[in-house]
Design a protein around this nucleic acid. Sequence first.
DNA 1: ATTGTAATGATTTTATTTTGCAACTTCCTC
DNA 2: GAGGAAGTTGCAAAATAAAATCATTACAAT
Lengths: 163, 163
Amino acid sequence: MESRIERIKKQLHSASYKLTPQREATVRVLLEHEEDHLSAEDVYLLVKEKAPEIGLATVYRTLELLNELKVVDKINFGDGVSRYDLRQEGAAHFHHHLVCIECGAVDEIQEDLLEDVEKVVERDWKFQVKDHRLTFHGICWRCQEKNGTEETKEESLEKQHVE
Amino acid sequence: MESRIERIKKQLHSASYKLTPQREATVRVLLEHEEDHLSAEDVYLLVKEKAPEIGLATVYRTLELLNELKVVDKINFGDGVSRYDLRQEGAAHFHHHLVCIECGAVDEIQEDLLEDVEKVVERDWKFQVKDHRLTFHGICWRCQEKNGTEETKEESLEKQHVE
DNA sequence: ATTGTAATGATTTTATTTTGCAACTTCCTC
DNA sequence: GAGGAAGTTGCAAAATAAAATCATTACAAT
């Protein structure tokens, strides 16, 4: 965790930006919620708990900056808001998402499934792929179980998703 | 064209909605600009040419309705606006997009490239895929040619991208 | 210490999208 | 046809997200 912040700090420096306390607090929130897909507003509220004096504009600026540096990716699941998702360190491409249309859960796939598809696109469409966005919409394994069987205690204990 | 409107009309009716003149005008605009990726505002301005009395709110409501019926898909390429894209008739899945980071052009891929990937997702993640969104970001063939004529390949590979 | 530059926070502005509501059509039933 | 419910419309207002503005502050390099 600390070392990751160190590396992000270096990334900022090499683009001649500074890791200010506000920016560090923002990055920490992102690291601590790596599984989630926070909106700018979400990040703002969480950062505010640690650094109450921070302004929303700074959060927006920081997120935009991190986006430029490819530390985070800005995504959009169709609701109006942009969400910010940490990139895996060293990942050449953005990871994929599974959005459950029943419970709203968003799971991530870090594996790159598109190597072959990208080759086809480069060859057949002469399109030089730099990055991609792939999201599947469907039913997650939790909802499939929930629907298929009567719910057991263990299953309901595992349930943690809110809309 | 007329028959397509007829079929959309039937789709509306079967969900107990009506194809009002305003809705028909909106659908016609979408059909006439199938290649483009119009924003709600774009659609509004185009519909207004045929039916000047239409209100922007109606266009929004119509597009939302068509989205629910899976006649159009609402997409978002990262700029703030939602765009509305006609689905191919009978297409089980949404088509893909190639967004050029140099000239901003958006091309479509109707072919379904994801069959294999979806199988993997269903098997390995137990995720029942209903739909997908796939967008590639990169350099379109036009920009590659344009770059190639004025500079060597190495130069164009080195070129940095700003804003 | 002084200066120049970058960064910040509060506020305002812009843009997009949604909602509330009264008026207006449709399409039934009588 | 008259009456009525339901769906639809246009306008205006409101809600929302994001970006821009700007005076103030922090900080590194003199």
